[in-house]
Simulated scan of single mutants.
Amino acid sequence: MTFDALLKNAAQRLQLAGSPSPRVDAEVLMEFATGRSRTWLYTWGDSECPTWEHARFDALIAARAQGQPVAYLTGEREFWGLPLATSPTTLIPRPDTETLVEAALARASTPTGRLLDLGTGTGAIALAFASEKPDWQVVGVDVRPEAVALAADNARTLNITNATFLVSDWFSALRSSSPSESSPGSPSPGSTFEIIVSNPPYIAADDPHLGQGDVRFEPRSALVAEADGMADLLHLITTAQAFLSPGGWLVLEHGYQQAPSVRQALKLAGYQSVESVQDMGGHERVTLGYLE
């Protein structure tokens, strides 16, 4: 079969399987399966597809039709223009989270400073910020060693040298009683940050969206929080105060219906200039405030 025919059939199959972007999925998987660019496929699509490339493409389409995320099948997802390696052990970076990066950059008013990314996963937020602010020190932490290793690999691949990643259950690794207990390259025990950001778990355990789309295959521990999805957000709002520099900002991503609750919690905890920022879909996705 020709490449054009294969793509047409695959897109139809993925549409029937419920993919929200069947043609794009098919093209991305074709690029990955064959090593041919989308431009080549548009130009030479009437060429015959080699048998082994056909077989590999069919296997990827079958997996996608079962619901496997494209980012896990290809092992890569672009975020903030950066190609990031992905893994089933981490969340897939999403365009809406670029709202969090934009909000953090807008508050990075000094030439140098320190930013902490809690629950860094692939390192997407930390690396996006670090790429824009090379004179800032960026620290990303995650409770999962495999996520920390992935984020560090992404930093090396992108040659981003001002980002460090370490294993930490939220702030736990920043509380060492002596420098010798800290990981190499980690912040000193008493360090503080001008900006702390996080995209924590914020989905309620009974949310029906957990049974839909890509989230079915993503790590549940990175998605679900107790107290109707608010537990980790509330924990960070309280705990971050000890790690923020005077005038430091806390910037949090949350669910599209959680903004009023997050604003209230920040105000009750003493944060100033509390506001929410809309994502590309017009939903209040990020809420932030600073401490005097």
Rank of each mutant, 00 (worst) to 15 (best):
A5D: 13
A11Q: 09
Q15Y: 12
S21V: 10
R23H: 15
R23E: 15
V24Q: 14
D25H: 06
A26G: 10
L29V: 02
F32C: 06
A33F: 14
S37M: 05
Y42H: 11
G45S: 00
H54P: 01
F57P: 06
D58I: 03
G67T: 10
Y72S: 11
G75T: 01
P83H: 07
P88M: 05
T90I: 03
T90C: 05
P93G: 09
A103R: 07
A103D: 06
A106H: 13
R107N: 14
P111C: 09
P111F: 11
G113L: 07
G113A: 05
I125R: 09
L127P: 06
D135W: 05
Q137N: 13
V138N: 01
V138F: 00
V138I: 13
E146L: 03
A147E: 10
A149E: 07
L150T: 10
A151C: 01
R156Y: 01
L158Q: 09
T161Q: 12
F165P: 07
F165T: 01
F171L: 03
S172W: 04
S180C: 02
E181F: 12
E181Y: 15
P184E: 07
P187Q: 02
S188V: 05
P189N: 07
T192N: 10
F193V: 07
S198T: 06
P201S: 05
P201Q: 02
D207A: 12
G213R: 08
G213P: 08
G213F: 11
D214W: 04
E218P: 12
S221F: 01
E226C: 03
L233T: 01
H235I: 02
L236W: 06
T239C: 11
Q241A: 13
L244T: 09
W249S: 10
E253S: 12
Q258I: 03
P260T: 04
L266N: 03
L268D: 15
G270L: 03
Q272L: 15
S276D: 08
M280A: 13
M280Y: 15
M280G: 13
G282W: 13
H283L: 06
V286H: 06
Y290P: 14
L291I: 15
